[in-house]
Design a binder for these strands. Structure first.
Length: 212
DNA sequence: CAAGTGATATCCT
DNA sequence: GGATATCACTTGC
């Protein structure tokens, strides 16, 4: 059994959210599921920058029961439903600063068979999207919403971290290009990884974009 | 109460 | 690989 080095709330503050989003790439997302621990490497994230970000739930200071988690302490889980899907956000920055990072894709690593059977798919379809990765992990409710990651069944392990050869910043998905924040490159990907959502086969690398 | 919204499954070619 | 139908919830009016 390998040693863990789990991130604490301090990981989610002390530097810009854009930096935190990039730091999360290559870290190991773990979930203690009823069937045992499952997990994978984070390969795609998006930064959401609070009240000035037209794409953010907290744009213009909007605050409601729905967006409340964004205003809590760093390391708070923000799990919300978008139509038929559950999405996972990690809250960054101190309380009352409503910023966060959306986890958009992971590369399956721990108990891959369990991840596959949870979603009934194989290959990149297991986790190459924000809703799909939650299905693969087996999270299909909002029980952990508002929990601190350190108090939850989710964790991020730095001991099993891998280093991307190259991080590429591209515009976010589904953000109005006309809006002020539309073209900002706030989506970060591990270049060459097959599990990036909507990635092209020709962009994939044999080593999945990891060093070593 | 109506409008607006992103992700995915499934169909097709 | 591309097009399209289907899904549930939040917010502004």
């Amino acid at each position: 059994m390998s040693k863990f080095q789990l991130v604490t709330p301090a990981f989610f503050t002390g530097r810009p959210t854009t930096k935190i989003a990039q730091d999360l790439l290559g870290t190991m997302l773990l979930y203690r599921s009823p069937q045992g621990i499952v997990g994978g490497l984070i390969v795609e994230t998006e930064a959401y920058l609070g009240t000035n970000d037209t794409a953010a739930h907290a744009y213009h200071g909007r605050r409601s029961a729905f967006s409340e988690p964004l205003y809590r302490e760093p390391g708070t889980l923000y799990i919300y439903r978008l139509r038929a899907n559950y999405l996972l956000d990690l809250v960054t920055q101190p309380a009352e600063t409503p910023e966060g990072v959306l986890i958009r894709a992971i590369e399956p690593v721990i108990d891959v068979n369990q991840l596959i059977s949870n979603c009934g798919k194989s290959g990149v379809l297991v986790s190459n999207g924000p809703g799909k990765l939650m299905q693969a992990l087996g999270i299909q409710d909002q029980e952990m919403n508002l929990q601190l990651i350190t108090d939850s069944d989710l964790a991020i392990d730095l001991a099993q971290r891998r280093t991307p050869q190259q991080i590429t910043a591209v515009p976010r998905v589904g953000v109005n290009a006309e809006a002020a924040s539309g073209q900002l490159p706030l989506r970060f990907i591990v270049a060459g990884n097959p599990y990036i959502s909507d990635s092209r086969k020709r962009d994939w690398r044999d080593d999945h974009g990891w060093q070593d």
